[in-house]
Design a protein around this nucleic acid. Sequence first.
RNA 1: GGAGAAAUGGCAGAGUGGUCGAAUGCGGCAGUCUUGAAAACUGUUGAGGGUCACACCUCCGGGGGUUCGAAUCCCUCUUUCUCCGCCA
Length: 423
Amino acid sequence: MLEVKHIRAHQEDYIQALKKRNFEAEAVFESILKLDDKRKATQKQLDEILSESNSLSKEIGMLFKSGETEKANALKEKTAGLKEDSKRLGEEMSQAATELQALLYQVPNIPHPSVPAGKSEEDNEEIFKEGEIPVLSKTALPHWELAKKYDIIDFELGNKITGAGFPVYKGKGARLQRALISYFLDKNIDAGYSEVQVPLLVNEASGYGTGQLPDKEGQMYHVGNDDLYLIPTAEVPITNIYRDDLLNENQLPIQLTGYTPCFRREAGSYGAHVRGLNRLHQFDKVELVNIVKPEESYQILDQMVEHVKSILRDLKLPYRVLRLCGGDLGFTSALTYDFELFSTAQDRWLEISSVSNFETFQANRLKIRFKDNHKNKALVHTLNGSSLALPRVLAGILENYQTEDGIVIPEVLRPYTGFDKIS
RNA sequence: GGAGAAAUGGCAGAGUGGUCGAAUGCGGCAGUCUUGAAAACUGUUGAGGGUCACACCUCCGGGGGUUCGAAUCCCUCUUUCUCCGCCA
């Protein structure tokens, strides 16, 4: 959520910047500023009335104490009108505030100057590419065939237990996945992150805080009885740890990592390109969250990108990094780098990580602020990224590491798996 | 799930209808003293709105109500604690 004072100060720049993401802001900004003016004016009137009735009340109190009952009762009558006015103005003010809030929720984050203009993923900018694409034999199989051949992931069984998109990992498949999780977490901890285990169900306030609500409501599973949501990413519970907090400068940066399952309804996305592990309703992910001072956020973003690169290097998987264009950029993000790994057997790129700087957009919703050494208060910047989304990494490993006599386990994972081949 | 108790500033903890945004202690910050530090002493120290700055307004778990006036009384929700039941 943008801050009204910033919209006021940079109205023209923001309108131009938002065009990059094909968002026409002019009319919304006008309404926002008008409503904000109205809110302030109404509050001013209200404050005056409250001030008057406060001092009348004090007077009445003193008159009662000194026994001047008639005088006190006379004053009481004066307060009746004030009460009505304050009630009316209070309602007007909160209505303006609610409307203002609703409009602010509609405006996406201002894209960073480096974000290219564009309509769709076609216009994303490839900024880095690394790793050798293996040459596979003609008998190479996509991962869903491999999963069946070696009996390590059972999609049918998941259909029976739950429904489509909830696979069962078996034997070495399950262990390989667990190995990846442990390896990612250890790697993140080595880089200075601190591990957390967080709830998988969150309340409405948390959903609003990180921006899943109100606009992406349909993506989350909702537990009606208790009015809770299954998390679509660990970003939600982890970032909400600090909701409504006023931090000290010396606490920053806060660097957290956590493993969680993620749940997404993915309504309406079916077909060949979502086969196997490519798109699931439940999947595992290890997440990175950074809460930092504004001036260091882009440096941290670069660090996160380098960190994810080094993971892919360790795993010896071919990948590329994209800078998302305005049209593909998430609602809450100012700058996002997507990581995609190349799946040889499917002959396509699969998104496996998304690293974003939200600047103050989430912090403003979440009310995460910090106090510097001069007691100035400011909103923090929040960033997050995956390291990595498990199923697609698993798919990439199965497909790129397949040989005639089995699937070779990447070197770095062997201490975690305890075996070096699936056959 | 049943019965009871509670929720106050960074923390602990007073406050039961008026001058209380809130005693006191701890912690934090600044200063005095000291070669330096500690101790001691002095001062200062919640958040939001609003203003050039003041003024002023709001906030004592959330929401609603009673009253001229609510941290204090009433209703409701949430959370925590104790006991019972159930349970990995």
